[in-house]
Computed example of a mutant assay.
Amino acid sequence: MDNQNEERFKQGEFAAWVGIIGNLVLAIIKGVVGFISNSRALIADAVHSASDVAGSFAVLLGLRAAKLPPDRDHPYGHGKAESIAAIIVAVLLFIVGLEIGYSSVESFFHPIEAPKIWAVYAVVFSIIAKELMFQYKYRLGKRIKSDAVITNAYEHRSDVYSSIAALIGIGAAVLGGKLGIDWLEYGDPIAGLAVSLLVLRIAWKLGAESIHNTMDHVLHEEDTVEMKEIVESVEGVMNLDEFFAREHGYYVIIDIKIAVDPEISVQRGHDIGKEVKRRLIEQSLVRDVFVHINPYNEEKDGEST
């Protein structure tokens, strides 16, 4: 593995550990304070943070699997392990959203009591901490091109949204308790329900995107312009007959067919193909290139075999 990829995985793994430790601390704080202050919304938010711990572990395992070099059974490498980890995170998030929603709805059928003011302080602390974690992981994920890290970042952002909803609900419930307005006390379980809907929406969106990335989709036309120009600039390439660049996790695998002068030697055609591959791999995104050589035929320009 080259130094650039090694550094990429080190940064990704460090981010995963930041998520594991940070979420564990927040889950404990919110869980304890939620129990003491009698806040269902804060307890639901604590469960959300606890699920993020599992999500960060999934990201860590995905990064380590993606780090493995190609082998006989996986000649294209293990880059998709990150996307699979992202799907696992999304599924965990979806299950947590359902559980939070169920718990919140159930609370409407039992006597309710306004939470204590400590719940407000805990949720404000959570909002600040989770937004900082989101900004760090999102920027890192974009820089190292990791679906798993970006998905994990949005887990933190979903926690921010859920904590804001919890803050509104808890604040309303606390105010209702102090002013003797009974219906405001239901702001706490209503906030828990809002949290669950936000979590479900984010889980669905992230899961759909991660599944799309595992389906061998090719890069869009506008994303391959520079790569095609590189191929066409190689001496001896008379036509680019076919070009498919597909994402394989954080890197790209390219399959192309190029046309060369039919009168040149096999060795010369082979050398042209090697030069095309070398120049494309110089791009940081490209891991491997499979080049098929066609004889150029002006009358059938663009047709390939």
Results as ranks from 00 to 15, higher is better:
Gly187Asn: 06
His156Asn: 15
Asp223Glu: 15
Trp183Asp: 05
Gly55Ala: 05
Gly192Ser: 01
Ile29Asn: 00
Ser233Arg: 10
Asp45Leu: 05
Arg268Met: 07
Glu99Ile: 10
Arg201Lys: 15
Ile112Leu: 14
Val89His: 08
Tyr138Asp: 14
Pro69Arg: 11
Tyr102Cys: 00
Val260Gln: 00
Tyr121Lys: 02
Leu206Ala: 13
Met1Asn: 04
Val160Asp: 04
Val276Leu: 08
Val123Ala: 05
Ser83Ile: 08
Lys205Asn: 10
Ala203Ile: 05
Leu198Glu: 06
Gly19Thr: 12
Arg157Tyr: 14
Met1Ala: 10
Ala66Arg: 04
Asp147Ile: 06
Val231Ile: 15
Ile87Leu: 05
Leu193Gln: 06
Leu63His: 12
Ile29Leu: 14
Trp183Phe: 07
Glu263Ile: 11
Ala129Glu: 07
Lys67His: 07
Arg246Lys: 13
Phe9Leu: 06
Arg143Asn: 15
Ile230Ala: 01
Ala119Gly: 13
Asp223Ser: 06
Glu298Ala: 14
Lys130Asp: 12
Leu132Asn: 00
Phe14Glu: 03
Gly176Ser: 13
Ser265Met: 10
Ile190Arg: 02
Ser163Arg: 06
Ile211Arg: 02
Glu282Leu: 12
Pro115Trp: 07
Ala122Gln: 01
Gly12Val: 06
Ile258Gln: 07
Ile170Arg: 02
Ile20Met: 13
Ser284Phe: 09
Val96His: 02
Gly269Cys: 03
Val91Asn: 04
Ile100Cys: 09
Gly31Ile: 09
Ala58Lys: 06
Ala203Glu: 05
Lys10Asp: 04
Val291Asp: 02
Trp17Cys: 06
His292Pro: 08
Ser158Leu: 01
Ile128Trp: 02
Ala27Gln: 11
Glu242Cys: 04
Ile190Leu: 14
Glu113His: 15
Ile100Pro: 02
Gln135Asn: 14
Arg278Glu: 12
Arg157Ile: 09
Gly101Met: 12
Asn239Tyr: 14
Asp45Val: 01
